[in-house]
Amino acid sequence: MSKAMTQQEALQEYLLRLADSDMILGQRLCELCGKAPALEEEMALMNVALDLVGQARNWYEYAAELIDDGRSADDLAFRRDAHDYRNALMVEQPNGDYAVTMGRQFFFDAWHYFTLASLVKAPDERIASIAAKAAKEVQYHLRRSSEWVKRFGDGTEESHQRMQTAVDDLWRFTGEMIEADDVEQTLFKAGIGPNPEQLAADWKGLVNEVLTEATLTPPPEDAWMYRGAKVGHHTEHLGYILAEMQFLQRAYPDAKTW
């Protein structure tokens, strides 16, 4: 991002980050359809996925209006390549076992929860109203994923081991979620986005609390962090996710309706 970034540019970029993270995590959860460890979980996973893709649609629609270059919400979701996607690296990680699925969900939900709690107060009414609806949904997501982290951490020896491994493996993707770049600093100064320091502190506080209650060991403070999503440098997974998710739009570019 150049120093001359306007507030408008920052906002468009930020909306795409919100939308893309919701969309990609929703997509990952869709992959689990019919494969959940219990029928109740089948319901819950699809419920969370529905919330996320619904939120993605709301953010994409607003982003499409602001970008105003003729692209629709669907075009933003289904016609951009990986280097234009702005989702967090966390959400594109594979489902793994259920400890990974829930660990990924928890780390993201915690970030999502505090982010939305701040966006609810944004002076931009559109943002505030989308965030208000999403915040209610995400409150449930966070409660559910925290509960699963605790169940696994403090469940059986096997589940504890799996959960600890998931936490250790996913940890490297948490750094970029709570480190603000120019976009987030610009929006914070404009009174739209969350206070970056506060967001990081809230996230760390909650994560530590849940991991401790789950009898899990939090990774070291100075652990190495993987970064890049905010400038479109993703892990290798995203290309495959998009190849599947965007298949029809790519295979039938002339189609006007679905």
Binding site: Q27, C30, E31, C33, G34, K35, M43, M46, N47, A49, L50, V53, G54, A56, R57, Y60, A73, D74, A77, F78, E244, M245, F247, L248, Q249, A255, W258
Partner: peptide
């Protein structure tokens, strides 16, 4: 058989509809 396409639904609207149906 629906899960087979839910990851490839062509638009946001169709994806949401199919997810709701599966749920």
């Amino acid at each position: 058989p629906e899960g087979n396409w839910v990851t490839r639904a062509p638009t946001l609207k169709r994806k949401l509809q199919l997810m709701a149906k599966i749920q």
